[in-house]
Design a protein around this nucleic acid. Structure first.
Length: 283
DNA sequence: CTGGATTCCTGCTTGC
DNA sequence: TGCAAGCAGGAATCCA
């Protein structure tokens, strides 16, 4: 990436893999379905956050399917064997030709396949990790509804927010009600819906819940269609940048004008997270 | 159960 | 110029 790429991207350049980014990684690696794991190189034992079985058991397993739940990427390796990957703040998961040199500094694991590729996991900040999971359903049993499914409806969102005092933004980030939304798409969804991020979740009317539900779906789908948001570091599994940064309305745009009304976008800390919104068109 | 605070970690930014 | 300090941020964990 050249310097010109950096200049247009703004000051707050961070890689925040959320649902659209993980989905884009998943889609970009689909061609590796059916490949067999020849070997696994683990450079840090503690990057495996949970062992339901020894990592050696993955050898000779076929990757039956790449799937996703929330922000987690799932490699289904047959009954009782799942390699689940979370990218945390700064994680990347991508394929290389098996003979390509790896120059990255924080490569914690490499999965060698029998199709001439290897899958590389790196994560400088190590907020992410690998999970060796026997029972997928159990692993995800506390995770909220997938926002892009028909289960996530305006009525459902309205129902689960009743009597909740937590800020609606924090509610969206919590993962156990609705999953896959992180800081970027929480801010973008609330802006599109015209709702202040610090409103108590329980204060949303049925109409506001409907707007928010539809905004979440639109913002996430739009990003998937653009292959995710690349501020600086994000790449999909084929080392390609996403294009959704050009669709952002408020995230990372404090002190700039709201594209909707021209008011200056403000930034406040809500629930311990940097939050961008427009005080004029979000009520 | 709920909501708030704390913790983990590195790299970038800021300030002197 | 150089170095120390500050800070961001997902989610598990702890506490009241």
């Amino acid at each position: 990436m050249g310097e010109t790429d950096r200049i247009v991207l703004g000051e707050e350049e961070t890689y925040l893999p959320e649902l659209p980014e993980v989905e884009s990684v998943r889609r970009s690696l689909i061609a590796n379905q059916g490949a067999k794991i020849k070997a696994i190189e683990l450079n840090r034992e503690d990057i495996v956050r949970r062992h339901d079985f020894a990592i050696d058991r993955l050898q000779d397993k076929n990757i039956r399917e790449f799937s996703r739940r929330g922000k987690y990427l799932i490699l289904n390796l047959g009954p009782g064997y799942n390699l689940i990957i979370h990218l945390g703040m700064s994680g990347r998961f991508y394929q290389l030709n098996e003979d390509s040199d790896i120059t990255a500094k924080h490569v914690h694991a490499v999965i060698w396949l029998d199709n001439g590729k290897k899958l590389v996991y790196e994560d400088p900040r190590r907020f992410g990790g690998l999970y060796l999971i026997k029972n997928r359903k159990q692993f995800f049993n506390r995770m909220g509804v997938e926002p892009l499914t028909k289960e996530f409806t305006p009525a459902y969102l309205h129902k689960i927010t009743r009597n909740r005092k937590i800020a609606i933004k924090s509610f969206l980030l919590s993962q156990n009600q609705v999953c896959g939304i992180g800081n970027i798409y929480a801010d973008e969804s609330l802006h599109l819906a015209g709702i202040r991020p610090d409103r108590p979740a329980g204060s949303l009317t049925a109409g506001e819940a409907e707007r928010l539900c539809q905004a979440i779906k639109k913002v996430l789908q739009q990003s998937i269609d653009s292959q995710g948001t690349t501020f600086r570091d994000y790449r999909n599994g084929l080392n390609q940048e996403g294009g959704n940064q050009s669709n952002l309305q408020v995230y990372g745009k404090d002190k700039e004008q709201c594209p909707n009304c021209g008011e200056v976008i403000c930034k406040q800390t809500i629930g311990g997270r940097g939050t961008h919104f427009c005080e004029k068109c979000q009520k």
